[in-house]
Design a protein around this nucleic acid. Sequence first.
DNA 1: GACGGGGCATTCCTATAGGATTTGTGTATG
DNA 2: CATACACAAATCCTATAGGAATGCCCCGTC
Lengths: 231, 231
Amino acid sequence: MSTAPAGNRSGRSVSRQVLADHVYEELLASLMDGRLEPGTAVSIDGTARDLDVSPTPVREALARLEHTGMVRRVALKGYRVAPLFTREDFAELMEARLAIEPVNARLACERMTPGQLAELEEAVSDLKKAPRGPSFAEYRDYLEADERFHRLIAEHTGNQFMVSAYSALGGQVQRFRLFGGVGITDAEYAISEHQAVLDALEAGDPDAAAEAMAEHVRRVRGRAIADAPAD
Amino acid sequence: MSTAPAGNRSGRSVSRQVLADHVYEELLASLMDGRLEPGTAVSIDGTARDLDVSPTPVREALARLEHTGMVRRVALKGYRVAPLFTREDFAELMEARLAIEPVNARLACERMTPGQLAELEEAVSDLKKAPRGPSFAEYRDYLEADERFHRLIAEHTGNQFMVSAYSALGGQVQRFRLFGGVGITDAEYAISEHQAVLDALEAGDPDAAAEAMAEHVRRVRGRAIADAPAD
DNA sequence: GACGGGGCATTCCTATAGGATTTGTGTATG
DNA sequence: CATACACAAATCCTATAGGAATGCCCCGTC
């Protein structure tokens, strides 16, 4: 660290945040919006240099990220971004979503407060407003709102374990949205499906909410399989 | 490190395993069989001294463990074993198990090979043979077989994401078996319920397998609520 | 006897050093 | 021209040092 201290020993004590947390957030963001493509090696020393920190916090952040499935670690070879899905992986992911997300929708419907419902409405609204241009940068807002909608439903179950279960999937879902063949054409259909889920939640009908969510996941699966690239 | 190097720099190159892995396994075992009770602080430097390693691998192992929910981390205060469940936590855990484990049983039933079925039979057999004396040490074998049964079903779904989802719960389930009020008396009933799940799997009836698993979880919930201690 | 302050130990956190191994490159040889 | 070897660079992994903050205990004072 020669030129830029960039640390915190001289600055004010904003240092009340651990560097490993910062590194984790930074890497997660890079993974979520596609800056780090599947298969890329994530060098410990390298990212340490990039972020102007020592390898130790990077090591800790990567250990946490590994458990999300977004990076893989080989014992003495280092970390690399988890490889692209095969068709089988995608089928497994959708199967798992079908098991978990309709339950989340049902539970959320039974317990949601008006304020939480408003958050969901905002997510769907953002989804509709988000630009869906051909460029990645614009598409990002759409993806963010999509992910937010599903995550909020998981959180509004009030069940910490369902949140954990969804989180185990959520990152992979996001990665698939980016690289798995679901393209921008998906958006037109997906918006109405999200709206259907929201309608059922607003109506307070748990069965309908679960079914609408299940239908959404099935349709995502169907669209992706239709125009999925080769393995 | 004054007296015992205990490391690997002098020994033969068995060092082809990373120390952090060893520390992780060690801590996990301590958590799973009750040597580390809820609320206990897990000092980084302390465990490093205990295991004759430096703090760096311990730090990495704990970062991984945190994601399992078995230890909690407070930003600049360190790690401690996750606290005991409240009744609400327990209800949430059972709700999540009801959402996930019957699905696992159904999928496993549809796809399981004879060899995998034999593994399950062995787990149930071990469950019956395991001593259920009043001492913790003896009870351990029973708990291990119980956990193994459920984990094998998750793995035999052939769906890596359902395995992840179960893993997010599995550790907590095990911790609850130890500390949550489900006592040895549970064993007598649970064995027949496990047998019922196994019977359905052997019969190749997915619906029955899912229902048997759901019934098992519901009964575990019922028994625990019956004689649960106060919060 | 009760309360407050100072020093010491512990602990977390980050940086740095160095050993072991792999990888890549350049050169010499068949 | 292709192959093999050697050296250099990068990388992972572990240990150690030291700063910053917290907690604890003892002691002096009211």
